[in-house]
Design a protein around this nucleic acid. Sequence first.
DNA 1: TTTCATTATATGGTATGCCAGAAACCACCG
DNA 2: CGGTGGTTTCTGGCATACCATATAATGAAA
Lengths: 228, 228
Amino acid sequence: MIKAQLEIQPIEEVQSLKSRTYEALKAAIGAMQIYEAGAELRLDERALSLQFGVSRTPLREALAQLEQEGLVRIAPRRGIFIVRKTKAEILEMITVWAALESMAARLATEVASDADIAGLHNLVDTFDSDAIEEHMGEYSDANIRFHAAIIALSGCKLIAEITNGLFTHVRGIRQRTIFEKDRARRSIVDHKEIIEALETRNGERAERLVREHTLKLRQHVEQFVLLD
Amino acid sequence: MIKAQLEIQPIEEVQSLKSRTYEALKAAIGAMQIYEAGAELRLDERALSLQFGVSRTPLREALAQLEQEGLVRIAPRRGIFIVRKTKAEILEMITVWAALESMAARLATEVASDADIAGLHNLVDTFDSDAIEEHMGEYSDANIRFHAAIIALSGCKLIAEITNGLFTHVRGIRQRTIFEKDRARRSIVDHKEIIEALETRNGERAERLVREHTLKLRQHVEQFVLLD
DNA sequence: TTTCATTATATGGTATGCCAGAAACCACCG
DNA sequence: CGGTGGTTTCTGGCATACCATATAATGAAA
């Protein structure tokens, strides 16, 4: 079929330097191992301005946004510092995550289609075998995507937005978190139960399972992860 | 008891123009009836800069933060607009609120002191009488404070932070929301049940009651409040 | 040598000016 | 009278210069 229509391409929307700088900074901070001892947590406006090739004005606007988001702290005439979350704050984030994702699961039982729920199996069944410990990296990713999928199934954009924001902070911790073999295996069992609850449209149960699952993570972090 | 100690007052920390402008703008937007028909939603940088008596630079940084927070939308070379939340977005906010406050109630049963829980009675028992409809304004305030108190009792700063952020958006709606007589009365009954669940340290029940209570509000808004 | 005051410098805070794009306006032409 | 093209104006984006303060460096006095 020949297209007689003019190919309208979404116009090359060149974003503002502010937003591009914001994205770049956020990515850079995310990729940084800020919890390593001796990590350089200070940002230099002028140096960054040179590195990004933009003036200080859009850079500062981007920094103001990151400050609002809690990723950096701007100390007047002292410096700009990447924020290291305390363990207590991390635990609170996981708690909030538990609250939101469990609500998402409840919503999913009400609004998600059977097909969409069935799609969750792809993120779990793959790791059905006993050789979980050999695929820790992949499992970790699938784990993340599983939880993101439940949130997506709820159809609640706001929950997705907030948890995304939290993930930005927790991401750094996650890499330090070594999942013990039993945790990974138990996690898969949990996930299967969650899927079952969703499939049977059991909102109460889905909510409870998701909450308890995430609170297990909370307790694990509280007990075994060292910070500060 | 005479204080022999020097009274250390938190030094008059004159904040930056950026943060003061941020606060002022946020308050101004909050006080504005943005959902009135014909409300002026456009902000003019230069005009604001004159009104606040600051240059455009700190003003723009404040606006960047408000944009990050979702209160305004900055359209490049088009204008700066106060964001009007859609009804769907309001409903999502209430949903998130339900998730967070119910988790807060659960936490409160675990960590709050008996005395603090008992303090909740002050925010409910006052309106025990039948003449609720004559004190709608006060009840509305007490209602808000009741829910804020539960969140405070949880000890989770993050939940308080997020719900505060949501409140900024919902505040405008709240004034348009006319609580029917039955809703107010039923609300008080709910609150009493919630207090009882907290007092008996029944986490499951407290969580459920708070969730259902807030979801009632959600349904009410969905059904009766007109937006857009 | 240590300490404290002074000075220098570095760094974020703010003001200002210019630029580019979008919208409004207007005149010309069909 | 209506539409189209050009011009003006309005508005936010960005760069730059200067300012104020915190900190480092320095030197003089104890």
